[in-house]
């Protein structure tokens, strides 16, 4: 914070030099550990470290398991965003905490008279400009990250299977297109993109196959679509993410990601004819 750039309001233009003298330089003067910059830097590093550690370890550990490439990228996004946000937030914490440590006289909280006035620092051009530019850069990074992930996730694939999801108070039913099979459990083949055509029989529901990392509302009268790419065998949960009345909490079920073979077997078990299965699974290709 160089002394030339302290702004004072128009009445005090003449006092600029005087104010500048009172302000300790941010970077310069004295041994390094006595400069404000150093104190802020220490707190900043500490808070950044904590933030980065939280970002790297907390979400991955507490976040639900992932069964799709979409959920993989959700996890990655959270890690990346936290790691980016940590140093930025730490600047605020650093400045605020340093001020509290350095410029709060002991017992000031119990005093009925205020401490003497601080420095009449009414702004600082370069600091504001740097702050603004960093925010702009960050916003651009965040935006591009989001746009890239979004477009890669929802690109339709040639061999995608299309199925219908019907929400109603308070049950999900899943229909496997031309096979005419309906189930309350969602079974999906692995490594195939699946496009859900989601609709509702009554009010708005939120179709949320949790570990697939996608969701879309179910509306009465028309269907909305969302694509997911299951990439890991195993169980996942399906929940309703939109309050839909009395038994909203119970509008949930489970799903399984299985191999292509198991998937066909399951459809056959449910009563689909081999011809219909063939049609349904290869139709899209």
């Amino acid at each position: 914070m160089s002394s030339e750039n302290i702004e004072i309001d128009e009445f005090h233009e003449g006092k600029r030099e005087e104010v500048a003298k009172q302000v300790e330089p941010f970077f310069k003067g004295g041994p390094i550990w006595k400069r404000p910059f150093f104190g802020v830097f220490i707190i900043w590093s500490f808070m950044t470290l904590i933030g980065v550690l939280i970002g790297l370890f907390v979400p991955v550990h507490v976040l639900n398991g992932s069964s799709s490439s979409q959920q993989d990228s959700v996890k990655l996004t959270i890690v990346v965003f936290t790691v980016i946000a940590a140093p930025v937030s730490a600047v605020v914490y650093g400045i605020a905490a340093y001020s509290l440590i350095k410029w709060n006289k002991r017992g000031s909280g119990k005093s009925d008279t205020p401490p003497e006035d601080g420095v009449a620092l009414r702004g600082h051009g370069p600091a504001t400009v740097i702050w603004l530019s960093i925010s702009v850069v960050l916003v651009v990074i965040l935006l591009f990250w989001g746009m890239m992930v979004l477009s890669s996730e929802q690109t339709p694939q040639g061999d995608a299977i299309r199925m219908q999801v019907v929400g109603q108070q308070w049950v999900w039913t899943f229909q496997y297109g031309s096979t005419k099979i309906t189930s309350t459990q969602l079974v999906l083949p692995v490594d195939r993109q699946v496009v859900f055509e989601v609709s509702s029989k009554d009010v708005t529901h939120g179709f949320w196959p949790v570990q697939l990392g996608v969701q879309v509302d179910a509306n009465p009268g028309f269907s909305t679509t969302i694509a997911a790419s299951p990439n890991k065998l195993g169980k996942f949960d399906v929940r309703c993410s939109q309050l839909c009345g009395l038994e909203h909490a119970y509008m949930q079920t489970t799903g399984r990601v299985v191999t292509e073979k198991q998937f066909e077997h399951w459809l056959a078990q449910k009563g689909a004819s081999p011809k219909a299965i063939k049609l349904f699974t290869t139709d899209a290709k």
């Binding site: 001020s99 509290l100 410029w103 005093s111 601080g118 600082h124 600091a127």
Partner: peptide
């Protein structure tokens, strides 16, 4: 934080 900075905190 700019307002707090270098203030004499009460």
């Amino acid at each position: 934080v700019g307002t707090i900075w270098r203030g004499n905190i009460w």
